[in-house]
Simulated assay, not measured.
Amino acid sequence: MTDFERMSGIDRREAIRRVSVLLGGVAFVGGSQLLTACAGDRPAATDSAQAGATGPAAIGEFSVADQQFLDEVADTILPSTAKSPGAKAAATGPFMALMVTDTYTPADQKIFREGMAKLEEACKAAHQTGFMQATPEQRTAVLTTLDQEQHAFQKTRKPDEPQHYFRMMKELALLGFFTSEIGYTKAMRYKETPGKYEPCLPYTKGETSWASHA
Score class of each variant (00 low, 15 high):
C200W: 14
P202V: 11
A187W: 13
A45N: 07
C38E: 02
T92M: 02
L143M: 12
T145A: 15
G52Q: 12
R157L: 11
P162Y: 11
G176R: 00
F112S: 01
H213A: 11
T81C: 03
G183Y: 08
Q109G: 06
E61H: 13
D75T: 08
A141C: 07
K191R: 15
L119G: 07
D147S: 12
P159M: 15
Y197T: 03
Q109Y: 02
Q50P: 01
D66Q: 05
Q163E: 10
S20A: 08
A27N: 12
E137Q: 14
P79E: 08
T185K: 15
L34Q: 00
V29I: 14
F177S: 03
G183S: 10
R6A: 01
S8Y: 07
E61R: 13
E121N: 02
A57N: 00
Q154W: 13
P43M: 15
H127E: 09
M132V: 04
G176W: 05
K205L: 11
S209T: 11
A126F: 02
T54A: 15
A49R: 11
F153I: 08
G130N: 14
K110R: 15
A125V: 07
H164E: 01
Q50T: 11
E161K: 11
V100R: 13
P106T: 10
V73W: 03
T129H: 03
P199K: 14
D102E: 11
P162E: 09
G55I: 12
D102F: 08
T129Q: 03
E192C: 04
D47F: 15
T193P: 06
G31P: 00
T204S: 09
C38S: 10
Y184P: 00
Y190M: 02
E61V: 09
E114S: 10
A65N: 08
T92N: 04
V73L: 05
S32R: 09
A173L: 07
V29Q: 06
S32D: 10
Q138T: 06
A74T: 08
A97L: 07
Q133G: 07
E14T: 11
D66P: 00
R167I: 03
D75W: 03
M188D: 03
A152M: 14
T54K: 15
T204V: 13
S8N: 02
K83R: 06
S8E: 05
A27R: 14
I16L: 13
P43C: 03
L119C: 05
R167Y: 04
G24C: 07
S20G: 10
E149P: 00
F62S: 06
E72A: 05
F4A: 01
T36N: 09
R139Y: 05
T92C: 04
D3P: 02
H151I: 15
I16T: 06
G115L: 10
R13F: 13
W210G: 07
F177M: 00
H164T: 00
D75G: 01
G115H: 08
Q68C: 08
A107P: 00
K205D: 12
F131E: 06
H213E: 12
I111P: 01
Q128Y: 05
A57G: 08
G183K: 01
K196N: 14
Q33H: 10
M1F: 01
I59Y: 01
K170Q: 14
F153G: 01
S32F: 13
P159W: 14
K124M: 10
L78A: 06
A173V: 06
